[in-house]
Write a protein that binds this DNA or RNA. Structure first.
Length: 104
DNA sequence: CGAGTGACCGCAA
DNA sequence: ATTGCGGCCACTC
């Protein structure tokens, strides 16, 4: 969270802080970056951002996997299971309890 | 610089 | 209950 870090940088920063076995929503990341209404930007950036970041831990507010994820949703689901997150029909199981939050 | 786009969110019909 | 539409903001071309 550098002062000169752009919205995109802040999102990527929080993203890298997300622990394995935990997921977060676009809206939450956007709000953490300081723009609660920029949830779409997070997704847009993600597609153009670094695949090295845990984008697979990004889900919509329903806890469902994103559509059009790099490689395919099945890949993301598999990765999430590898992280310790169980998914059913591309939906994170116990999403409410698996949702990661920075200061809560 | 201007316009278009986007892996979303929320509400209305 | 489900479906459709608009809107906010930042990033890309």
């Amino acid at each position: 969270m550098q002062p000169d870090a752009s919205f995109r940088d802040q999102v990527e920063c929080f993203m890298s802080l997300v622990p394995a076995g935990r997921v977060t929503t676009y809206g939450d990341l956007a709000a953490l970056a300081g723009h609660p209404y920029a949830a779409r930007i997070v997704g847009g950036i993600a597609h153009h951002g670094d695949q090295k970041l845990p984008w697979h831990r990004l889900v919509n507010r329903f806890g469902g996997l994103a559509s059009g994820y790099y490689g395919g949703r099945e890949v993301q689901a598999t990765i999430l299971e590898t992280e310790g997150v169980t998914c059913t029909d591309f939906i994170v199981d116990n999403f409410a309890e698996r949702r990661w939050q920075p200061s809560l």
